[in-house]
Simulated assay, not measured.
Amino acid sequence: MSAAVRVAVVDDHPVFRLGMVALLGSLAGTEVVGQAASAAEARALLGLDGAGAGVAADVVLMDLDLGDGSGVDVTRELVRSRPGARVLVVTMHESDDAVVAAVRAGARGYLVKSAGPAEVERAVHAVAGGAMILAPTVAERAMAYVVGGRAGSRVPFPQLSDREREVLDLIARGLDNTAISRRLVLSPKTVRNHVSNVLTKLAVPDRSAAIVRAREEGLGQG
């Protein structure tokens, strides 16, 4: 009998995270070895903060929006630290930029949160076995992206998560935090966190400087 696939779950939405932990724990051949609700907790769980070795996970299920940071950044750090690490992104985002950023960071799979239990189970075992797997809807978009000749196009600000880039685009359009909160259906605190992360990652002092950078890269034009 083969050993169970050891899985760690990283997601800042408690209902989804606990539901995923319960699902994985109910499946034959999988074992949940840890969970994290933020980028900081993920770094501690995976031994990226220098405080310990971290859990021995065969597959890490990773959300892209973690409130205090980006799942893309955590994925990149994990893969650099452990080249054999296998990350399966599970997110709400299906955009081309999100898929490209995650794969470039080293993710081995990409599912959307609407995936059913059987699809999650197949993806976890496929990624654990070394395969690259994309959700059907994401695979269709990725193929269209390649066939359309956009595979080589540059993603603006690849250091940002998809959500942070979305927030930056709205900042560049002149929206304030309250308007962004309404537009994206996010809490004001979450928007403030995203804005702070954007300023930090772009190494700019304020919103005005961020707007200049964003418009130079073509954001804020919609």
Rank of each mutant, 00 (worst) to 15 (best):
L170H: 02
E41A: 15
A151K: 09
A39M: 04
E94D: 13
D96G: 07
K113V: 08
H13C: 04
V59I: 05
V100Q: 04
D73L: 11
M20N: 12
R76H: 07
G52F: 12
G129Q: 08
N193F: 12
V79T: 06
V195M: 08
T190K: 05
R6G: 04
R207P: 01
G130V: 12
V147F: 11
G174D: 02
A115L: 14
L111Q: 13
Q221Y: 07
L23N: 03
L46I: 10
V9W: 07
Y145M: 14
L88Q: 09
P136H: 13
R80H: 05
D65Y: 05
L18T: 12
V74H: 03
L111H: 09
R76T: 05
V138T: 09
A139K: 07
P188N: 00
A139F: 05
A123W: 08
G34M: 10
V146R: 05
A36L: 08
V89R: 06
S81P: 14
T91P: 04
E94R: 10
V33E: 12
Q159C: 13
A42L: 02
L186W: 04
S161I: 01
G129R: 03
L48Y: 15
V155M: 12
G25P: 09
A85I: 05
A179W: 03
S153V: 15
Q221L: 12
G218T: 00
R141G: 15
G54E: 07
G34I: 11
V90Y: 11
D73H: 12
R173G: 05
V21L: 03
E121F: 06
T75I: 06
A102L: 02
A118G: 09
S153I: 11
S81W: 07
A102H: 03
I180K: 00
L45P: 15
D11M: 04
V79N: 01
L170P: 11
L61C: 13
M62L: 08
D73E: 15
E140I: 14
V90T: 14
M1P: 14
V21I: 10
N197I: 12
D96L: 14
R6C: 04
L64V: 13
G222V: 12
N177I: 05
G220R: 06
T137H: 01
D97W: 06
V32S: 09
M143T: 13
E217A: 09
A210D: 00
D12F: 02
A118P: 06
G25R: 10
L66G: 03
Q221F: 10
D11H: 08
R76L: 13
P83A: 13
P83Q: 06
G34T: 10
